[in-house]
Amino acid sequence: MTRTSSSTVLALAPGWRVLGWLLCPLLGAALLWGLKLAAGWVSTLAWFPFQGPFRLVESIPEPAATLGALGLGAVAGLGLALLGELDLLSLDIGASGVELRRGGKSQRFDRGAVGAVFFDGGKLVLLGTGGDELARESSDLSKARVRAAFEDHGYPWHADGDPYREDYRLWVEGTPELSDRANALLRARKEALAKDQGDEVKELRRELVKAGVFVREEKKRQYWRTSPDRQR
């Protein structure tokens, strides 16, 4: 956590990030090296399916096989570390507004536009003054530090969670209170959740927000609400 006279910046500690960059290549190299060692044993098991790839690996001469396994594993680990780095959320919280950054993209909201801030499970949620959902982002940041930073800068922190939680209803196919477009988006999002397509799930949530529908999920079941203004 970094504090200045006007804002507080929250990000994963550099030590943890460095550890990730070191461990991921080592674990990747160890995993492929282990698979390379196992290939010789598996290729002797006549009953084991898909023998072709294992026999191919076993046929590679040493030390090329070991060096190749270590190198490919390390490269794969670096790729995983990069994906993890891009998925990290950082916050810049100040008296004038808050900025959420992830993967080179940012969202900024003026202080006057934020009506509630809270955690919903592992997700940080910002609501507008009219109850509209401004942001819902997964976060590995310390919840205590996030709360302290928002409260220090005068934001309305809701320790009990979503003030509109009771307004959410379980979505079922063809919900009559929703438009055909909203139902179609929720249907597509249900399929994306079932297939663990994270990026597609996020994109469909953004489209639902544009349609004035806010969604959360529990055990891959979707719950929805609209803004309080639309319910009047």
Rank of each mutant, 00 (worst) to 15 (best):
T4A: 11
S5Q: 15
L10H: 00
L12C: 08
V18K: 14
G20K: 04
L26P: 13
L27D: 06
G28Q: 05
L35N: 02
L37F: 13
A39G: 01
V42C: 03
F50C: 05
Q51T: 02
R55Y: 06
I60T: 15
E62D: 14
A65D: 04
G73V: 09
V75D: 05
G77P: 04
L78P: 02
L78V: 15
G79R: 09
A81V: 05
L82V: 14
D92L: 03
G94R: 09
A95L: 08
V98D: 01
L100W: 00
R108C: 07
G112D: 08
V114H: 02
K123H: 12
L124I: 03
A135S: 06
S138P: 13
D140Q: 13
L141S: 10
L141V: 08
A149F: 01
D152G: 09
G154W: 13
G161E: 10
G161C: 07
D162Q: 06
R165T: 09
E166F: 09
Y168S: 04
L170G: 11
V172M: 15
P176T: 12
P176W: 06
S179D: 02
S179L: 03
D180G: 12
A182F: 00
E191T: 12
L193K: 01
D196H: 12
Q197P: 10
E200R: 13
E203I: 08
R205T: 04
R206K: 10
R206E: 07
K210P: 00
V213W: 00
V215S: 01
R221H: 11
R221P: 06
Q222P: 00
R225P: 13
